Amino acid sequence: MYLLRNTVQPYDWGSRTLLPELMGVPPTGAPQAELWMGAHPVAPSRVVRGEALIPLDRVVAEDPEGELGAVTLRRFGPRLPFLVKLLAADAPLSVQVHPDLAQAQAGFARENALGVPLDAPHRNYRDDQHKPEMIVALTRFRALCGFRSPADTADLLDSLKVPALRPYVETLRAVRGPQALAEVFRAFLRPPTGLLEAVARGLAVAVAGSEEPCVAAYDRVAQVHPGDSGLLSALMLQYVELSPGEALFLDAGIPHAYLSGLGVETMASSDNVLRCGLTSKHVDAEELTRVVRFDAPPARVLTPREETGEDVYPAPVDDFRLARYVLRAGEPRRRVALDAPQILLCTTGTMAISSSEETLDIGPGQAVYVPAGDEAVLAGAGVAFRATTGTAERLG
């Protein structure tokens, strides 16, 4: 069992206050967007070994079976297959989608064959993995996730009273179904001159006379990203508000954008992102439309279900499994032992996490890594999240 030292990513959309408030430290004045916990090569956690700090990906590489367990090693190879983040958004992130496994493998091989450098700004696939993900709200959390129905999208666009939107409204009402969404989405990726400005003006008028939170959310997108065609894609997506403890699961091909709030994010350990807009980064319209799922079901807000003493957030993937523990002073300790690696993250209160060799005390924003087969016993008063793989077999 190792205490983790983790990297904060200072992306522009990050909050300057949410992470410092959670962790009880003074703000730096700079945006603090994501705290990464895992072995992703971009920003691996470091484990404390005596006086040394060792990158977690190196720890795994030195003893894959000992760290991951036989089941995880056989299923995913010699790598930690999940990544945990504390995500703190103060402004809209890019509208984006992630590929499925087959798309990632094909795209990665194709770009390698073309000789596209891994760090090239126009590269779409930086590894050969998919990236399903889940966000669990710690505060009120706002997001855009999945397509509105064609009828709902048509009604929203019509309500803005922008004459230039009329052809798109007619397409959505005449064609209907996934085909209508696909036609309008593709057209919005390359909008005609003047359309973005007209839509932004329409939103500014609409928000003044509307109490719908979605209208205010779209208007905020227009203000933060003026002149960005991603605004039009955003208008096609459902607006979702999560209360603390609620979650969203985002599978491959689902367009989404987080807007604001603090949450625990768990995902497959991948860096494959295709962006639709609200970004200065590369947008590959052709590849994007191959990956987007226009027939996906509506976004569904998830709540945890109780399973053998823990609250589990259901996800239909093997790469990760996320559970929450709410501990109260004086309650029996919680014993967790799995033939799979784990990351335990405290978000509220204090936790004493014990193994056969030591006890580590952690507070909000701190995390420990537990290798496969090791036992962790949780005690204290607060809330902790446990990330592991979906292939793990419970030992006790």
Rank of each mutant, 00 (worst) to 15 (best):
G177N: 13
P341N: 01
P213F: 06
D374S: 14
R75K: 11
E358H: 08
D374L: 14
P364H: 05
L237N: 02
E170S: 14
V136K: 01
E170L: 15
G38N: 06
P150F: 08
L196G: 13
T350E: 14
D90I: 00
G14F: 06
A30V: 08
R140H: 13
P314S: 09
P92K: 06
A329V: 06
T391S: 12
E246W: 01
V317E: 01
H40Y: 10
G115I: 06
V301W: 07
D228N: 03
M267K: 05
R148S: 02
D251R: 09
I135V: 15
A296C: 14
V116E: 02
L302P: 03
L259S: 07
G261C: 08
G261K: 01
D90L: 06
A285E: 15
E287Y: 03
Y258L: 07
L344K: 07
G253E: 11
A216F: 09
E183F: 10
S356A: 14
P92S: 04
T289A: 12
W36M: 12
N272L: 10
A384T: 11
G50S: 12
S260T: 12
G177L: 01
V368L: 09
P55I: 03
E51A: 15
I254Y: 12
E21I: 02
G50L: 12
D339H: 12
G363C: 11
M37N: 12
